[in-house]
Design a protein around this nucleic acid. Structure first.
Lengths: 345, 345
DNA sequence: TTGTAAGCGTTATCAC
DNA sequence: GTGATAACGCTTACAA
């Protein structure tokens, strides 16, 4: 049996083939297919017929070369496993597709090297825009993109660069909500596990935590603040450290979802009852929160809207390149999950 | 302030500029940069110097046009939120990068239309390969890719097409393990919540469940089998339906991770103790399993290896196009998670 | 309105 | 070993 027999025709159909079949010039085919100019309806019909019968598929590579820019955006995200990103991606794609653009997803995995590699690919492939959730607010460098005049929108995390359009959530407000909620439950020693100093959202969530305590007249205790890595293990270790204090906390505000899993795991491994002894309140959406043994609330973000807005700003930046850069901040909200031990029982 | 001032030079440096600076021909520059032929070391050094000082970045679009194929693979996955895929992606990327290729991630979201759109993009962009976790084993159509002679490897799920390289896990064996484990715990009425009939893994996991019961001499009861949609809500509803039976199950084998969350949620909403009254055993890795109120085991898959293998098969298919298609089946294993109520306490 | 022709940046073929 | 030249498939001045 010949496995090549499936290939009807290894040389792809080009615009010239369509032109020949439709008895018009290649430029006319191009005009019909792109709708850029008015074409005699009779010829247009012949072109469309020919394209269909020949199974013509435009070569996006040739088009990109000629146009000097590809109809492709990169969406570089720091942690694909965070459910936070799933609907964010949809928000971006919906806008991109409406513009006739494709989105390529890139998972930098909080790794600056990977992130840089993806930016280089974006340049090499002449992509028309990049939406970036930076691995590091201080060290991520968009210079490569700038030099290639590729528009960038920062999402979820700030980047240390002038003139970057940015879409964020109000991390301070979210953290303050979290603290207020815990205080309202009567908690008096509230700890905070946040992410690395290089990530703006981690820093801002910590600030919000401190502001929340201060504005309630509660004391700040630096022993109750742990900096971890936004990953599960980091949350686990930070929790162990907190509970080893002479005066351990009765509540923990955890600044992202993976670390929240780690924190809960640590508490249970130590045989500590949550939420009775120690309440846990996370950040980001926690799809599994309803099946945990204790009640877990979290600060939820408008993720789809975040993606949609970033994408819209990218489009606007392309159409109006000299417009002053904007930063948009969206408000988070508090999501309560009853957990396995429901209040009413 | 002028926001254009960042653009050092809007016309990118080309191979001709490098050639001029290095006082050689463009072909020599190309040869140096690609290492395809032997070049006088002196000239080669001049070329590399020129490229560095000018900040030359090859135009991947032009290269792809000339070579008639882009150094890019598409990885089309059915559900990006499934943690299953995160390490699978790494496995694919590691092999691709070693080949000098980039991977673009595409989330079909179990949607045939989206999936088809991504395949069309792969064709338009002349990508050199596609790894596909099909939205439907029966209805996903790779004809577009075949006509464009783009190599395909099916991963995780079979596709109804001849001559496709495929990498799978042994779903039947995994499901049988699951049933054996539950029987070993003394469970006597074991239910199964599986996915849609159009997805091969759902069908095979159901078969494994049945075989597992049969080979243990246990009775089969079709009332105990629910077909859902591989999503959380489907798992929830299926569980409610199962528990409404005259003789409800004392264990449920759930064929994927999102439905496992739904199942646990339903049990707790109904006030049913798990695992005491009803044990739950899932499929796929469950990162949050350790923080659930009850013990949850699951059938774990060698995800990185799955991705690495699929990528390797793609490379081999490209180098040896006429080789007979292969199907590789990897073995899953059983992962036990103590859950919040640890056995030893 | 339609066709002709040039050119996007690269690489492969062919002489030298 | 190196350089000139053509070609990949498309879009877009410009000419008709």
């Amino acid at each position: 049996m010949d496995y090549e027999s499936n290939n009807e025709n290894d040389d792809a159909v080009t615009i010239h083939d369509v032109a020949a079949t439709a008895r018009v010039s290649p430029s006319t085919v191009s005009r019909v297919l792109n709708g850029h100019a008015t074409v005699n309806p009779v010829l247009a019909a012949r072109v469309r017929d020919a394209a269909r019968t020949l199974g013509y598929r435009p070569n996006a590579v040739a088009r990109s070369l000629r146009r000097k820019v590809a109809a492709v955006w990169a969406l570089v995200i720091s942690d694909i496993q965070n459910p936070f990103f799933t609907s964010l991606v949809r928000g971006v794609e919906d806008v991109a597709n409406a513009q006739g653009c494709s989105v390529v997803l890139c998972n930098s995995d909080e790794d600056l090297k990977k992130e840089r590699r993806y930016m280089e690919v974006a340049v090499a492939e002449r992509m028309s825009g990049v939406i970036l959730s930076a691995a590091s607010s201080t060290d991520s460098d968009i210079g490569v993109l700038r030099r290639a005049s590729i528009p960038v929108v920062a999402i979820d995390r700030r980047i240390l660069a002038d003139n970057v359009d940015t879409v964020l959530v109000d991390n301070r407000a979210g953290a303050q909500m979290a603290v207020a909620e815990l205080l309202g439950q009567g908690r008096t020693r509230i700890a905070c596990i946040t992410g690395p100093r290089r990530v703006s959202s981690a820093v801002e969530r910590l600030e919000g935590y401190r502001n929340g305590l201060k504005s309630a007249g509660a004391a700040l205790d630096d022993q109750l603040v742990q900096m971890a890595d936004f990953k599960r293990k980091g949350g686990y270790q930070a929790t162990v450290a907190l509970m080893a204090l002479d005066e351990p906390p009765d509540a923990i505000f955890v600044a992202n979802n993976l670390m929240t899993i780690g924190a809960l795991e640590a508490l249970w491994d130590m045989g500590i009852d949550s939420p009775a002894t120690v309440a846990v309140l996370g950040f980001d959406d926690l799809p599994w929160a309803a099946v945990t043994s204790g009640s877990v609330a979290s600060v939820a973000q408008p993720t789809y809207e975040l993606g949609r807005l970033a994408a819209t700003m990218l489009v606007e930046r392309r159409t109006t390149p000299n417009m002053a850069p904007r930063t948009v901040v969206l408000q988070p909200s508090l999501a309560r999950h009853p957990g396995a031990r429901r209040a009413e029982q």
